[in-house]
């Protein structure tokens, strides 16, 4: 966890940890119905609930949530937790080579809320209109087998989202009825949203937008370094 470097926006720690009874109750009920499928959870008080399930229970999680009233399908996507080997790609890679900049050391992989063990995590969100709450589901996918059961039989809207996740991350969804590309041409090679997929435009020429984050000249640099 990196801190904000500026002093005046640092948020004070909450004096007493507030509780969120409604979300605790939802989590408890979900856990009791899914059993040991729940491997992690996180609650931000008054805001949101994250539940991480294991892959064997991924489909069941959708069914359980649907039976609990979470019938509105929000989205399904994924996160690649690999720290980008290219940094922000602000500088054209060939310029870096010419300048003799050493290659970046890979950072450690840090998963977000509700934890995680693998590089790829499925991310999906369901919403209950009656309860006025949403649940964000996560699911670890092992690197050697990037597949998960499809949700499209439970939530029809997952059909397109899984197609998108497949081409962007290279997953496969077992039992999906129509596993064709959503956006990319059929002969496209690679999975663009993986962190190790370079953003080609940036590798060809540097982007002028980078000047935006440099400190203004003549202003005391109290913010610390830009990068």
């Amino acid at each position: 966890m990196s801190q904000l470097s500026s002093a005046d926006t640092e948020t004070p720690e909450e004096a007493a940890p507030a509780t969120d009874d409604a979300r605790e109750a939802v989590l408890a009920e979900f856990t009791s119905r899914l059993g040991d499928g729940v491997v992690g959870s996180h609650i931000r008080v008054g805001d949101d609930l994250w539940i991480r399930v294991d892959r064997a229970h991924w489909l069941e999680a959708a069914e359980v949530a649907k039976s609990m009233g979470y019938r509105f399908f929000d989205f399904l996507s994924a996160i690649d937790w690999l720290p980008s080997p290219f940094g922000r790609d602000m500088d054209a890679q060939e310029d870096l080579v010419v300048a003799g900049t050493p290659a970046k050391e890979p950072e450690a992989m840090v998963q977000g809320y509700a934890g995680g063990d693998t590089r790829f995590q499925l991310l999906a969100r369901l919403y209950s209109i009656s309860a006025g709450m949403g649940i964000t589901f996560k699911c670890d996918l092992p690197d050697d087998d990037l597949s998960a059961p499809t949700w499209s039989n439970v939530f029809a809207g997952a059909n397109w989202h899984e197609r998108e996740a497949r081409e962007m991350f290279g997953f496969s969804f077992d039992g999906h009825p129509n596993m064709i590309n959503m956006y990319l041409p059929a002969d496209f090679v690679g999975n663009p949203l993986r962190k190790d997929f370079p953003l080609l435009a940036r590798r060809v020429r540097p982007w002028p937008g980078i000047v935006d984050v440099e400190p203004m000249p003549g202003v005391a640099d109290e913010e610390g370094e830009g990068e």
């Binding site: 931000r44 977000g112 984050v213």
Partner: peptide, 17 residues
């Protein structure tokens, strides 16, 4: 509001719709 000129967002996840 008073925010730093160079905006760094603390680690975390949020979904706002």
């Amino acid at each position: 509001a008073k925010v730093p000129r160079i905006i760094k967002v603390p680690a975390g996840e949020a979904y706002v719709a």
